[in-house]
């Protein structure tokens, strides 16, 4: 039985599929988040050096990982949309951007709040924090370009090109910032100082998994709205159950 993958690449069928999938991502995300926090706060031992402040790592590291990967996935969808002209891929890229930007913001916020007790300053020009800030600018540039073009087709393709150019630049920016940081300050400041206790790793992975599931759930929900907005003139939208109420 050959699975017809392309069946779900049509916005109409994907709309239904996404609708069914959202609870399967949303609830496990919440549960895993609670488990992760429980392990992180009750099971994981107090750190010798930073006592309780290090517990921010369970939020900061997943958020940073998410913000980076979501940008790459967004660029991937954008490239797909640009090459194969599949509207759904561009819609997915558009749906991913705000979530990615929020993860970048949370990563910066938690990084700053962690930096204060550890290094005594709200903002430290550490290579990773600086690259995260630039990544946030890239997200905002993508969202701004997408929002400022009325015609959805041109908006998709223009922002797709920007996302691709941006993703090519991410490694270059990271290495130049890292080089710049080591020149000026010497990156003696390490994030993951102490070796990770087993409970810390469990907590980290649980929160990371929760963040991934959350990101998927929110993106699917947002992409459904985008599909509705884009396909409002089509037949299948008018026959939707939601339209009947």
């Amino acid at each position: 039985m050959a699975i017809n993958w392309f069946k779900y690449s049509a916005p109409s069928t994907f709309y239904g599929l996404a609708g069914k999938l959202i609870p399967f991502f949303a609830w496990p995300a919440a549960i895993l988040f609670v488990i992760g926090l429980y392990i992180g706060f009750f099971v994981a031992p107090t750190d010798a050096v930073q006592s309780e402040a290090y517990r921010i790592i369970f939020l900061h590291v997943p958020a940073s990982i998410l913000s980076m990967f979501i940008y790459l996935i967004m660029a991937g969808y954008a490239a797909l949309g640009l090459i194969f002209n599949t509207r759904l891929s561009s819609m997915m890229a558009q749906a991913l951007a705000p979530t990615g930007a929020l993860f970048a913001f949370v990563s910066l916020w938690s990084g700053a709040l962690w930096g204060k007790p550890m290094w005594g300053a709200w903002w430290v020009w550490d290579a990773r924090l600086t690259s995260e800030l630039i990544l946030l600018f890239l997200y905002l540039g993508y969202i701004a370009l997408q929002a400022s073009i009325e015609d959805p087709r041109r908006a998709d393709r223009a922002s797709a090109l920007l996302a691709i150019v941006g993703s090519v630049n991410v490694p270059i920016i990271y290495f130049s910032v890292k080089w710049w940081n080591t020149l000026h300050q010497g990156s003696t400041i390490k994030f993951t100082g102490t070796s990770m206790h087993i409970a810390m790793q469990q907590a980290m992975f649980a929160v990371l998994a929760a963040c991934w599931l959350y990101a998927i759930a929110v993106t699917l929900a947002r992409v459904r709205s985008i599909i509705l907005e884009r396909e409002r003139n089509t037949q299948w939208v008018s026959e939707l159950r939601e339209m009947k109420q």
Partner: peptide, 29 residues
């Protein structure tokens, strides 16, 4: 252990931010 502001500051803001995002998505729908 004295770091309440920092720990709960970062987790609080994170939960707040993602909560608002969920509400925004539902509102948009």
């Amino acid at each position: 252990n004295g770091y309440a502001f920092y720990v709960w500051g970062s987790y609080g803001v994170a939960v707040l931010v993602f909560g608002i995002e969920v509400l925004m998505v539902r509102h948009r729908r």
